[in-house]
Computed example of a mutant assay.
Amino acid sequence: MRYREFTDLVDDVLGRAQGRLLVDELVLDALGGRTAGAALADGTEPREVWHALCDALGLPDARRWGSDPHRQAPPRPGQR
């Protein structure tokens, strides 16, 4: 997953305004007590950040990949 795909998913799944707020403000234990934005700035893979954000928000797999039926769900970190 690339950064652009991450931001597209944030906008599609969480809504542009709310999603961007969550990326900038929600502190995630799975990312070492950083926000998603801080983790991305520190070089954490967007895929790992996306899964951490979705897990923290309790989003089921069916909602994680937005409205595009052709979007492939990237594997979780540590999976191939």
Rank of each mutant, 00 (worst) to 15 (best):
M1S: 07
M1L: 12
R2D: 14
R2A: 07
Y3K: 15
Y3D: 15
R4L: 10
R4N: 11
R4M: 04
E5A: 12
E5I: 02
E5T: 02
T7M: 15
T7N: 14
D8K: 11
D8E: 15
D8A: 15
D8S: 14
L9G: 10
L9R: 14
V10R: 10
D11N: 12
D12V: 00
D12I: 00
D12H: 09
V13C: 13
L14M: 05
G15P: 03
G15N: 12
G15K: 13
G15H: 13
G15R: 06
G15F: 13
R16C: 11
A17I: 08
A17N: 09
A17K: 07
Q18T: 14
Q18S: 14
G19D: 13
G19A: 14
G19K: 10
R20W: 12
R20P: 02
R20G: 03
R20V: 01
L21K: 07
L21R: 11
L22Q: 15
L22V: 11
L22F: 15
V23L: 09
V23F: 08
V23H: 02
V23K: 09
D24R: 15
D24P: 04
D24W: 07
E25V: 12
E25T: 13
E25H: 08
E25P: 01
L26D: 08
L26Y: 12
L26S: 07
V27Q: 04
L28E: 13
D29R: 05
D29I: 00
A30I: 03
A30H: 02
A30L: 12
L31E: 01
L31H: 02
G32K: 08
G32C: 05
G32V: 04
G33F: 04
R34D: 11
R34I: 00
A36H: 04
G37I: 05
A38S: 11
L40H: 14
L40M: 14
A41W: 10
A41T: 08
D42C: 11
G43A: 08
G43F: 00
G43M: 06
T44A: 15
E45C: 10
E45Y: 06
P46D: 01
P46L: 09
R47C: 07
E48F: 07
E48P: 02
E48S: 14
V49Y: 02
V49L: 05
W50P: 01
W50F: 07
H51F: 15
H51D: 01
H51L: 13
H51R: 13
A52W: 03
L53F: 09
A56E: 02
A56L: 06
L57K: 10
L57T: 09
L57V: 04
L59S: 02
L59R: 03
P60G: 06
A62Q: 09
A62I: 05
R63N: 08
R64L: 05
W65T: 02
W65E: 08
W65I: 03
S67V: 04
S67L: 06
S67Y: 00
S67D: 03
D68V: 09
P69D: 06
H70V: 10
H70T: 08
H70G: 12
Q72K: 06
Q72Y: 01
A73F: 00
A73Y: 03
P74L: 04
P75I: 04
R76K: 12
P77H: 12
R80L: 04
R80W: 00
R80P: 03
R80T: 04
